[in-house]
C-alpha cells in the first residue's frame, strides 16, 4: 500500500519530505510499457543516504515495489532489477495506478553507524534500533492516471440555448464546461474573440478552485497542497498539478484570485487590453 502522509514516526525514516535525515532523497521514477499480455513497469530509483544504500547492499534491507490500483501488489526488488511485469488479467490501469518504493528491514538494524541523520537523531543514534520487518523509508509516488480521456484539456465550451442564464459554468468530470446561451456570447465574430472570452475563463477557474477547496479540505476554507494526496477527481487533479507546478502551497477562499493569477497568464490584463483596443479602433 502506498503511504504518503507526513507524520511523526517512532524512529527516523528516509523519505523525500521528512527532516529526519540530513539529506533525504528517495526518488523513484517509473515508465510504463505494454504488450498483448503484460504491463511492464520500468523502474529507476535514487537514494541519497550511504548508510541506507549499504543496508541494501548487505541485504539487511530490502526494496519493495508497491503497485496499487484496485488492490495492492508487492514486489521485492533487487538492486539489479530494472523492471517488473504484471499480467493484464491481474492489474487494471484504466483507473489510477500508484507506485511507490518502500525499504523494509530484513534484520534488526542498529543506527549507530548512520552518519546521515539530522542533528536531533544523531544525538541518539547509539540507541536507535529498528526491528526486523519494519519500514526504513519510502519514496515519492508515481501516479498513472488512466481514466482521463482528455488529459491536457481544461476547458470545453458548448452552445446551449436551453440554459436559464446567458452563461453557465459546469464543472465536468475532467474539464470546465462553459455553456453559452448563444454564439454571440462567444464574440466569435470579433477578431479578439479569444481574449474577450477571458472573463468566462476566469469565472470557470474561480468556480473550479472553489470546488477544489470544498472537495479537498476538512474545513471547506483552505487546502494545504503539501498535505493532501493527489486528488482522485480528474479536474481537481489538473488544478493540483497546475498549482504544484507554480509552487503554490496553499489554496484558500482568501487567495483564490492570487492562485488564478499564478496559474493563468494575465487573462484579465489581456482582456482589458483587447477591450481598450476595440474601443479605440471604433470597431
Amino acid at each position: 500500500m502506498i503511504y504518503k502522509k507526513d507524520a511523526n514516526f517512532p524512529y527516523p525514516l528516509l523519505t523525500n519530505t521528512s527532516t529526519s535525515y540530513e539529506s533525504s532523497n528517495f526518488i523513484l521514477d517509473v515508465n510504463l510499457h505494454e504488450n498483448s499480455y503484460n504491463y511492464r513497469f520500468e523502474i529507476s530509483y535514487e537514494i541519497d543516504s550511504q548508510f541506507v544504500n549499504k543496508l541494501i547492499e548487505n541485504e539487511q534491507a530490502q526494496l519493495v515495489l508497491v503497485i496499487q490500483s484496485k488492490d495492492n501488489k508487492f514486489f521485492y526488488i533487487k538492486p539489479e532489477d530494472k523492471y517488473i511485469e504484471i499480467q493484464k488479467s491481474r492489474i487494471s490501469i484504466s483507473n489510477r495506478t500508484t507506485i511507490q518504493l518502500h525499504l523494509q528491514s530484513k534484520a534488526e538494524i542498529n543506527f549507530k553507524d548512520n552518519d546521515d541523520l539530522s542533528y536531533f537523531y544523531s544525538q541518539f543514534k547509539e540507541d536507535i534500533v529498528v526491528l526486523r520487518n519494519s519500514i526504513l523509508g519510502f519514496s515519492n509516488v508515481v501516479i498513472f492516471e488512466g481514466s482521463s480521456t482528455k488529459p491536457l484539456e481544461l476547458f470545453e465550451k458548448k452552445v446551449n440555448p436551453d440554459i436559464k442564464s446567458d452563461i453557465k459554468i459546469e464543472l465536468g468530470s475532467e474539464t470546465i464546461i462553459i455553456h453559452y446561451k448563444n454564439e454571440q456570447l462567444q464574440f466569435n465574430d470579433s477578431p479578439m474573440s479569444n481574449t474577450l472570452n477571458n472573463p468566462y475563463i476566469y469565472m470557470g477557474l474561480q468556480k473550479a478552485l472553489y470546488r477544489f477547496i470544498v472537495n479537498n479540505s476538512d474545513d471547506g476554507e483552505q487546502v494545504d497542497l503539501e498535505q493532501i494526496d493527489a486528488p482522485t477527481d480528474n479536474l481537481d487533479l489538473k488544478f493540483y498539478n497546475l498549482m504544484k507546478k507554480k509552487m503554490i502551497n496553499e489554496l484558500s477562499i482568501d487567495n483564490i484570485d492570487e492562485v488564478i493569477y499564478s496559474i493563468s497568464d494575465k487573462i484579465l490584463e489581456k482582456y482589458a487590453g483587447a477591450v481598450r483596443g476595440l474601443s479605440l479602433n471604433g470597431n
Binding site: 523525500n16 519514496s139 498513472f144 498539478n241 497546475l242
Partner: peptide, 30 residues
C-alpha cells in the same frame, strides 16, 4: 494551461486509444 499541464504531468501513450497521464509527486522538490 496545456503547456503547464504537460510539464506537470506528462502523458504516456500506451496504445492507440489509451493515453495515460503520469504524475510524480514531490520527488524533485527537495
Amino acid at each position: 494551461f496545456k503547456k503547464d499541464l504537460t510539464e506537470a504531468m506528462g502523458t504516456v501513450k500506451i496504445s492507440k486509444d489509451k493515453s495515460i497521464v503520469k504524475v510524480t509527486t514531490d520527488a524533485p522538490k527537495k
